[in-house]
């Protein structure tokens, strides 16, 4: 067993875990944050994407013990209380989800795209940047629209502009 301490969604957690515990298992089974999903064994589907120190990573391919001292954000930590994150709101508004299974990973990946590429994203960029996230339901059409709109809405002052 190895001790690990990290911040998850703003709260500090310390646990004694079997070193083979993956970050995905850690948040799902130890912290019961089941919004992070597991959809494959080969690190390709992206259902498990969370942010570690502000960067999108596949929690199924990260040891929990490697995240000692890190700040982890999962889908449960994205909304500000009852107020949805703009990317979450965009997925609902643009029907970017059907069964919802890929959705947490999609949203976490989408926020990461905006963090890296800015608020104005074209379709081509969005499609390429979503390479590591598989959705079987939507055909991506509405996910692309949602990410584009969500990116705009994340711009500072976007809410104010939208409200005008």
């Amino acid at each position: 067993m190895t001790t690990v301490t990290m911040t998850v969604n703003g709260k500090s957690v310390t646990a004694n875990v079997d070193p083979r515990t993956l970050l995905a298992q850690f948040v799902r089974e130890h912290l019961r944050l089941t919004g992070t999903h597991v959809g494959c064994d080969t690190s390709q589907c992206g259902a498990c994407v969370v942010h570690v120190d502000g960067r999108a990573v596949k929690s199924c391919t990260t040891l929990a013990v490697s995240c000692d001292g890190a700040a982890v954000t999962t889908i449960e930590g994205l909304a500000n209380g009852a107020e949805l994150h703009p990317m979450q709101a965009a997925f609902r508004e643009h029907h970017g989800l059907q069964c919802g299974f890929c959705t947490p990973g999609m949203i976490m990946a989408a926020v990461d795209i905006v963090n890296r590429k800015g608020h104005v994203l074209d379709e081509h960029t969005i499609r390429e940047e979503l390479e590591g996230n598989i959705c079987r339901c939507t055909g991506y059409h509405n996910i692309v629209k949602a990410v584009e709109a969500g990116a705009r809405a994340m711009a500072p002052g976007a809410a104010a502009i939208a409200a005008e």
Binding site: S43, G46, V49, R55, A56, V57, K58, T61, T62, A109, D112, I113, R116, E129, E131, G132, N133
Partner: peptide, 8 residues
């Protein structure tokens, strides 16, 4: 790979 793979 993809962005998340590149991040690690």
């Amino acid at each position: 790979g993809d962005p998340a793979v590149r991040n690690r």
